[in-house]
Design a protein around this nucleic acid. Sequence first.
DNA 1: TCTGGGGTCCTAGGACCC
DNA 2: TCTGGGGTCCTAGGACCC
Length: 430
Amino acid sequence: MHTSTPTVALVDCNNFYASCEKLFAPKLASRPVVVLSNNDGCVVARSAEAKALGIAMGVPWFKIAEQALQHGVVALSSNYALYADMSNRVVDVLSGFTPELEVYSIDESFLNLSGFAHLDLAAYGQQIRQRVARWVGLPVCVGIAPTKTLAKLANHFAKKRPIFDGVCHLDRLDETTRKQLFSETAVNEVWGVGGRITARLAELGIETVEVLRTADPEWIRQHFSVVLERTVRELNGTACLALETIAPPKKQIMASRSFGSAVFHLIELREAIAHHISRAAEKLRAQGAEAGAVTVMIRTNPFKPTDPQYQRSVTVPLAHPTADTLELVETAAAVLKRIYRPGLAYHKAGVMLSELQPAGARQCDLFDHPTQDARRHATMQAMDAINQKWGRGTLRAAAAGRAQGWQMRRERLSPAYTTSWAELPIALAR
DNA sequence: TCTGGGGTCCTAGGACCC
DNA sequence: TCTGGGGTCCTAGGACCC
């Protein structure tokens, strides 16, 4: 029996959303491109050229729009249909490199490479890059290390340090080089160390990865939390975070949106809430689950402190768990009525489904109506089938309305190049 | 003078991630 | 005029119980 040290690779797409946009619009190839959040609010992705111009992640677009456009920046609304499809293609390719893979986010996957020690893993990483580039057309970087936290860090080096040529195999570095890299890197580059913890660590004189790595884990737990303790152990090569090759079922499902412009009236809010809960219920059924509680949230615009502020969310348990859109719409509308206050400029509304459990798992009780339940169930199945075939929202609860003046802005949307026949890219040959 | 203590459950809020 | 959305985990503190 031969046991080897565990090895994990993190494969991360470079500037994922911006790269997807460039892939289908060759004229953008050398231009600075940014992708905006819903409502065209903030910058959520930047191409290399946009980063070089100093455009920060998360900055509100309206604050930089004028200047950015002068520099030739192309700004696009986020096109999730396109990104989700491209993400699936990348995962398909990566699946050919390992039997065990965790899809961590839309643009990142962890690959279990334990037992691949007989290979030159840095060369293997280069193969991954080349195949994704050739088969999908997107650039990726690869970090290889014994733990997930170290693999993330290795990926950071692979991206930032040209010497690695896109692949950093941490255990291949000699001790002096590794220590040098860790000493030159700020703690906030570590996975799990955000702004707040960075500030508190700085007060204690811990500013680089190397200093954090050599801190006493027990002491870290006492002064921070068990979460940061695990991070420190992971930085030392002790795996505390398992690879989740099978996605665990969701514990809650949310659907919320800021409005394109302020909403004042209960009727409009009710339409938005009905729309959101319909989306959430669809996701719920797709997962084969039922919800045991519904939360409704509404809020005014916190970025307008001169406006009267109001924010409220209320959760109600359901008498029996359900995935029925009409039932959920009804419940949510009743909750909304309770928390609505007139005369306020509402900015955002949303719902959350929680206490999720597998459909049909519950016990029948005295108040069940088996025939009515079966009829509702069939209705939902038909609705999902029709919407899948003819497009989202073809069949929907009347309460979700038609006008939808509350809907978000998406003024700079690129075509659904890969998921809509009508929007396929056209190639011209001559 | 002197007013228990420990366990569990729930919720709200904080922190992080992409 | 214009500042995203969807998720997880952990902790502290209150309520309640014996």
